[in-house]
Design a binder for these strands. Structure first.
Lengths: 247, 247
DNA sequence: ATAATTAGTGTAGAATTAACACTAATAGAT
DNA sequence: ATCTATTAGTGTTAATTCTACACTAATTAT
C-alpha cells in the first residue's frame, strides 16, 4: 500500500495537499429540451484552440466554494437563464488526454428543460449558442463531448422506462398523446396508443386539469403531472428496463 | 455567461489554468465480497486527523498521468492485491465540506471480488484493513463514506436485477442455489427456488462443468458463468428493475 | 351530410409470474 | 437394510400483465 489520500493520511500538522499536482475539475452539461416535436440538445460553438469552430457541451470550472450540483446549476442558469429544472449527475470523465491544454476532469450532468421554457434566454439567437436535434448534430463535437452525449442519451432512454423523467420535457399542461410522443422520440420506437393510455392512467401520475384543447379532430383532455414528491422521480414505469450501457 | 472552461476558452497564448484554484481529486472504493455467506465491504482504519480511529473506504489521489479507471484499479490492487475483478464508476461526491483538510472531490467506484479471491492480500490480518459485513459496520464511517456506501449498496441492488453482476461475487464454479443465495443476500429478500431454477436456466448464462459436489444431501451440479462478452454484463435479468435512489 | 382527423376504449390471446406441491439423491442413524 | 433428515431439482396451475388490433367518439373541413 502506498500513500493514499484517505486511507493513509498525514497528521494535521504535516498534511500538505499541494504536494500533489492537482487536475482542473469542470462540469459539462447535456441540456435537453423538446422543440418541434424533436429532442434537442444545447451546444456552444468554440471560438478558440483547441477544437476551434467545433460545437461543445456547455460547461465550466467548479469553484472552490460550491458543490458539484451547485456548479452545474450555476452553469445551467448562465447558459439558459432557467431555474428549477431537472438536473442529475451523469458520469465523470477523466481520461488524461481528453483536453490537450491540461489535465481536466469533467463531471457530466444531464438537464431537462420543459418545452415551454427553452426560449427564455437562448432566444438571443446568438450564433454561438444553439439547440440542435440530437439526430442531426453539427459535426463531431469538441473534446470527448460526443461520447458524453452518447452516454447521456443512453441514460435518458434507460431512466425513461422506470421514472417519470419524461414529464420534465413537457410544458405545464399537456395531453396524453403528447407524452406518448416524447417516449417515442427518446426511445426511438413506436408505442401502442391503447396500451399507453391504460398504463399511464393506472400509474396515477396524471392530474386532470379539466381543460380541453381543440384541434383538427376530437378535442383532447389536458393534464398536469401530479408531483407526489418534491422532485420528479420513480413513479411511472413505462415498461421494464432494457439495457443501459453506461460503463 | 461568465468565463467557463470549455464553452468560453481563452486562446492558446492566454490560456492559464493556474488562474483557477484547483481541488484535489481522489478515488474511493466500495469493495465487496462474499464471506461466510454474507456480503462484506473492505474498510481501512484511519490513524490520523481527521476522523482518527474511524473506518473509511480505501482510496487515494488520482495521479496526473492516469485515468480515473486506472487510478481506481491501482488503488484496488494496492489494497487487495487482486487483479481482473469487476470495477465500475459509481458517482462523484463533491461537497466542499466533505473533507475538513481541503477541497477534495471523490470519484467513487464499486468493485466486486469473487468469494475465492478475497483472502489473497488482506489475509495479513492487519488490524487496519478488514472486511466487515455490510449490515454490521464498525460505527459511522469517516468523511461522507457512509453515504457513499449507501449509494453503492443501492446501485448494487438495482443492477443485480438486470445484469449478471452477481456472478462476480461467486467463485469460479458454483451451484445454482449458491447463486440464489447471493441474490437473497443483496436483495434482502427470499426468492422462490423453483422459479429461480427455471429463470436462470432459460437465461442461458450457465455453463455446466459436469462436476458434482457432495454435501449433506443430494449432490449438486456445478456450473461456471458463461461469458458471452469479455465483461460481465447485461444478460440475465432476475426480474424487472425496482427503484434505484441514486440522485 | 359526409369525409378526414385526432382522441380514446375494449378485448382476447399470448406470455410471464408467483405460489407451492411434488420427485430425486445423498449421508447418517437405528 | 431401512428409515429419516437434508439438500437438490422439477412440474403444474391460477393469476397477472402484455400485446396487438379492432372498435367507438368528437371535432373540423368540404
Amino acid at each position: 500500500m502506498s500513500t493514499s489520500a484517505d486511507s493513509q493520511p498525514e497528521t494535521a500538522a504535516t498534511y500538505d495537499a499541494s504536494r500533489y499536482e492537482r487536475p482542473s475539475v469542470t462540469v459539462d452539461l447535456a441540456i435537453f429540451t423538446l422543440k418541434d416535436r424533436e429532442l434537442h440538445v444545447l451546444l456552444v460553438k468554440r471560438r478558440n484552440w483547441p477544437f476551434e469552430g467545433h460545437w461543445a457541451l456547455p460547461g465550466g470550472f467548479v469553484e472552490m466554494h460550491e458543490s458539484l450540483d451547485q456548479a452545474a446549476r450555476r452553469e445551467l442558469e448562465e447558459e439558459t437563464g432557467v431555474q428549477n429544472v431537472y438536473l442529475e449527475q451523469l458520469y465523470t470523465f477523466g481520461d488524461p488526454e481528453r483536453d490537450p491544454r491540461t489535465r481536466v476532469i469533467s463531471v457530466a450532468y444531464i438537464a431537462l428543460i420543459g418545452a415551454d421554457m427553452h426560449q427564455l434566454h437562448v432566444s438571443d439567437e446568438s450564433i454561438d449558442v444553439n439547440w440542435f436535434p440530437v439526430r442531426e448534430l453539427p459535426g463531431p463535437l469538441a473534446f470527448d463531448h460526443s461520447k458524453i452525449l452518447d452516454v447521456a442519451l443512453s441514460r435518458l432512454r434507460s431512466k425513461l422506462e422506470y421514472t417519470t423523467l419524461a414529464f420534465q420535457l413537457l410544458p405545464e399542461v399537456f395531453s396524453i398523446l403528447e407524452l406518448k410522443h416524447i417516449y417515442e422520440q427518446i426511445l426511438g420506437e413506436q408505442l401502442d396508443k391503447g396500451n399507453f393510455y391504460r398504463k399511464i392512467k393506472e400509474a396515477g401520475v396524471l392530474e386532470p386539469t379539466g381543460q380541453l384543447r381543440e384541434g383538427r379532430g376530437r378535442p383532447t383532455h389536458l393534464y398536469r403531472f401530479k408531483r407526489t414528491r418534491a422532485d420528479a422521480d420513480f413513479v411511472f414505469r413505462w415498461r421494464e428496463a432494457k439495457v443501459e450501457d453506461e460503463a
